[in-house]
Amino acid sequence: MRIDLKGRTALVTGSTQGIGAAIATGLAGAGARVGINGRDSARVEDSAARLREVLPDADLVPVAADVTTEEGARRAVDALGQVDILVNNLGIFGTADPLEIADDEWRRYFEVNVLAAIRLTRLLLPGMTGRGWGRVQYIASDSAVVIPAEMIHYGMSKTALLAVSRGFAKQAAGTGVTVNAVIAGPTHTAGVEDFVYELVDRDLAWEEAQRVFMRRHRPQSLLQRLIEPEEIAHMVVYLSSEQASATTGGALRVDGGYVDSILP
């Protein structure tokens, strides 16, 4: 399958590292003009430079903006002008005793993981529907369906994204714009490495620590390993393409078989 995104502009939030950086790389590799987003301008510029080392001809726009604020969201949109593909990837996660999570922390998880995505969708969806083409995606998680006891506040935010995605898909019905959620399974990123070592012996080498983590804490994974960010990106690039024109309102799993059901 050859995916050609030339002439399309994409905004990937939280794309200076991890899954977001892999998604930006995949979209740029398919020919899209890609907005690299993060709050710190130096990190954004560095991320764009590293991507250009891999793809020298990539059309990249550094977008230093805190999209969790109204001002930052508008700055990101203004920096790119027309946006055809919105990938709401930005998110925070962490472990916590459910009975110790304060109200402000519940609000922070909702505002960063959910409201920021809603705000950008609200800003960009009218232009997409007016032009008769667009792609909106929300990077959810297996935690949206299998709520971890140690991450209830995170799981709550990802469950909310599934509802937001389905609702906006209905709003865009019949317009040529598709809206989907991607359910990412346990994925190998720097942040997840730290998370793994919170739960297993820090003296273990990474490969052994990963195996112990999956065996003890994610035993239902059929992949039996962490997913690489590029594997999530492949789904996002496909959903951004013409070939995915009939896929909308969905929650598509790249979870390594972690969720033990046929449907989410």
Score class of each variant (00 low, 15 high):
Met1Gly: 15
Arg2Thr: 11
Leu5Asn: 04
Ala10Tyr: 02
Leu11Lys: 09
Val12His: 03
Val12Tyr: 10
Gly14Trp: 11
Ile19Trp: 06
Ile19His: 06
Ala22Gln: 05
Ala24Ile: 05
Gly26Asn: 03
Ala28Ser: 10
Ala28Tyr: 00
Gly29His: 10
Ala30Thr: 09
Val34His: 02
Asn37Val: 03
Gly38Tyr: 05
Asp40Tyr: 01
Ser41Val: 15
Ser41Thr: 12
Ala42Trp: 00
Arg43Ser: 12
Val44Glu: 11
Asp46Lys: 13
Ser47His: 10
Ala49Trp: 02
Arg50Gln: 13
Glu53Asp: 15
Glu53Pro: 01
Leu55Gln: 09
Pro56Cys: 09
Asp57Thr: 08
Pro62Asn: 11
Ala64Gln: 05
Ala65Ile: 02
Thr68Glu: 12
Thr69Ser: 15
Glu70His: 08
Glu71Ala: 14
Arg75Leu: 09
Gln82Trp: 02
Leu86Asp: 05
Asn89Arg: 03
Leu90Lys: 07
Leu90Ser: 14
Gly91Ile: 08
Gly91Ala: 14
Phe93Arg: 07
Asp97Val: 07
Pro98Arg: 13
Asp104Gly: 07
Arg107Ile: 13
Arg108Cys: 04
Val112Phe: 01
Val112Cys: 09
Val114Leu: 15
Leu115Thr: 12
Ala117Asp: 04
Arg119His: 10
Arg119Ser: 10
Thr121Tyr: 02
Thr121Ser: 15
Thr121Met: 11
Arg122Ser: 09
Leu123Lys: 02
Trp133Gly: 07
Val136Ser: 08
Tyr138His: 14
Ile139Asn: 11
Ile139Glu: 03
Asp142Trp: 12
Ser143Trp: 01
Ser143Leu: 02
Ala144Thr: 03
Val146Met: 15
Pro148Met: 10
Ser157Asp: 10
Lys158His: 11
Thr159His: 12
Val164Cys: 06
Ser165Tyr: 05
Ser165His: 03
Arg166Trp: 06
Arg166Leu: 07
Arg166Thr: 10
Gly167Asn: 15
Lys170Thr: 08
Gln171Ser: 10
Gln171Met: 11
Ala172Tyr: 10
Ala173Lys: 12
Gly174Val: 09
Val179Asn: 10
Ile183Ser: 03
Pro186Met: 06
Thr187Asn: 10
Thr187His: 00
His188Glu: 14
Gly191Gln: 04
Val192Asn: 07
Phe195Gln: 07
Tyr197Arg: 09
Leu199Trp: 04
Leu199Ile: 00
Arg202Thr: 08
Arg202Met: 01
Asp203Met: 00
Ala205Leu: 09
Trp206Leu: 12
Glu208Thr: 13
Gln210Asp: 11
Val212Arg: 13
Val212Lys: 07
Val212Pro: 00
Met214Ser: 00
Arg216Pro: 01
Gln220Ile: 00
Leu226Gln: 02
Leu226Ile: 01
Ile227Ala: 01
Glu228Thr: 02
Glu228Trp: 00
Glu230Cys: 00
Glu231Asp: 11
Val236Ser: 03
Val237Gln: 04
Leu239Cys: 08
Ser240Trp: 01
Thr247Met: 13
Gly249Leu: 04
Gly250Ala: 15
Asp255Ile: 03
Gly256Arg: 07
Val259Glu: 04
Ser261Trp: 12
Ile262Pro: 02
Leu263Ala: 12
Leu263Trp: 14
Pro264Ile: 13
